[in-house]
Design a protein around this nucleic acid. Sequence first.
DNA 1: GTATTATATATCATATAATGATATATATTG
DNA 2: CAATATATATCATTATATGATATATAATAC
Lengths: 115, 115
Amino acid sequence: MTDPLSYLPLTEPTFYILLSLAPGKKHGYAILKDVRQLSGGRIRLSTSTLYTAIGRLLDQELIERLDEEAQEPGPGLPRKSYALTDLGRRVLEAETVRLQGMVREARLRLREGGA
Amino acid sequence: MTDPLSYLPLTEPTFYILLSLAPGKKHGYAILKDVRQLSGGRIRLSTSTLYTAIGRLLDQELIERLDEEAQEPGPGLPRKSYALTDLGRRVLEAETVRLQGMVREARLRLREGGA
DNA sequence: GTATTATATATCATATAATGATATATATTG
DNA sequence: CAATATATATCATTATATGATATATAATAC
């Protein structure tokens, strides 16, 4: 019964990390690349931003760590995969509603105050 | 020729302070009340948030201080009025575009990943 | 007449979070 | 074999919000 609204506002990196996990589980580095692509190259998360955010989101239980059995071998350190929790998805939805409201209010005021 | 995009993302308080000034000049305390009303009571800026943000926005030249001649007397310390600069308005517009993009991306992903 | 409230600006200490820099480790590609 | 892409992690610094506290004044309530 934790209220999703109590987690808002999300910062831009946090929003995109959660959004990156919306379609399904990913490991950290995959989130990094996905966010870059998703934002049209505008957002380049540093690894420090990514992994401190992941730590925080785990603490807050907005994402969860998935136990990996038998990873296929590949480059780099062993992967750790993460997924949105139900709470995380509800927070992301609530944030989207908040952002939509801000856009609506801004459009009204920028119109009335415009040149 | 400072690029408005270089000021983004705005934090929620900063966004609302600029938005409050979009229709015209206001003094600090009026911004405080306006933001509260504008956000449906959700956002209650503390005075420390407000005045530190005002100082920063002045430094960045997103707002400007207006010289007050002959204030009508009223309660409280003398008022100081502020207005958006052209740059400030362009930053607010750019932020609105950014937010709209985030909403669009979120709606797509929340739909495709939804239950 | 005085106490409270609303108005109005300002600073301080603390907490949160992003960021650049740096480090470690490994498979693939040139 | 060197460089690059993959992959996770920590540290110091910077930016910003926030609650607490302070000062000052006019209007309102009692």
